[in-house]
Design a protein around this nucleic acid. Structure first.
Lengths: 113, 113
DNA sequence: TTTCATGGTGTAGACAATCTATGTCATATG
DNA sequence: CATATGACATAGATTGTCTACACCATGAAA
C-alpha cells in the first residue's frame, strides 16, 4: 500500500520502446522480455509485472504487437508476442523521439559554454 | 479537453531536474526558467504553465528551492526562485539518476554485440 | 499420488507528473 | 483611460508506473 512513486524505477514512457526494441530479436513472452531488458541494462531497469502486462496489452491493442499462446522452454504455457509491421514503424518513431529528447535534456544539463 | 498524453512533450520526471539545473545560474522566476530551458534545448523542450508552476511549488515544498517576490526586468511582479543547499544536493542525485537511466535505455536500444 | 515450488499471466487500486484550458492581477505602453 | 503583456495560478483529465495480490499449469519431489 506504500506509494507507487514513478521515480523509483523506469523513465516513464520508455517501457513501450524497450519492449518493442526487445521484440526485434524475435517473438518472446512477457517474462522473457522483462528478463532481457533487465539483463541488457545490467539490472538498471527492472520491470514489474504490474507494468509489464498492462504495457503488453496496450501495445497489442494498438496493433504494434501480436500474441499467440505457446509452450515455453520450460514447458509452461506462455503468451508469445511478436512485432507487427506497424509495430516496427512505431519503434522507429519512439526511438527517434527518445533520441531527440534525451539529447535535449543532456543539452540543458551541460550547456555548450 | 483533449487528452493530456504525457508522451506529447517532456520525458516525464525530468522537469524537476531541468528546473534545478537552470537555477544553478542564479535566481530566476518561472517564466524565465521555462524560457531558458526552451532556448537551451533549441525548442525541443517546451514547458507548459500547467506543468511549470506545480513543479515549482512542489520543489519549494520539498525545500529544494526557495522563493521571494521581486520585480522582474520588465517591471512586473514575479516570484524569484533560488536553489537551496539541499536543492543542490538533490540536483546531484537527480542528475546521476538521469545519467544512469539514460545510459541503461540506450544500452537496450543498441546492445553491445 | 499428493504436495510443492516454479514459471507465467493477470488485475485492482494508489499515486504522481504532465497536459489543456482557463482565470487573475499588475504594470507598462499607447 | 484602455489595452496588451508579463507573470502566476489552478482545476480536471489522462496516463504510466508501482505495489500487492491472485490465479493456473506444469514439473519435481516426497
Amino acid at each position: 500500500m506504500s506509494p507507487a512513486s514513478p521515480r523509483n524505477q523506469l523513465l516513464y514512457g520508455t517501457l513501450d520502446l524497450l519492449i518493442l526494441r526487445t521484440l526485434v530479436y524475435g517473438p518472446a513472452h512477457g517474462h522473457a522480455i522483462a528478463g532481457h531488458i533487465q539483463r541488457v541494462s545490467e539490472n538498471a531497469l527492472r520491470i514489474e509485472t504490474g507494468s509489464l502486462y498492462p504495457a503488453l496489452h496496450r501495445l497489442e491493442a494498438r496493433g504494434w504487437i501480436a500474441a499467440e499462446w505457446k509452450t515455453s522452454d520450460k514447458g509452461k504455457r506462455a503468451r508469445y508476442y511478436r512485432l507487427t509491421r506497424s509495430g516496427r514503424r512505431q519503434l522507429v518513431v519512439e526511438q527517434s523521439r527518445w533520441q531527440q529528447l534525451s539529447v535535449a535534456v543532456t543539452r540543458v544539463l551541460r550547456p555548450a559554454e
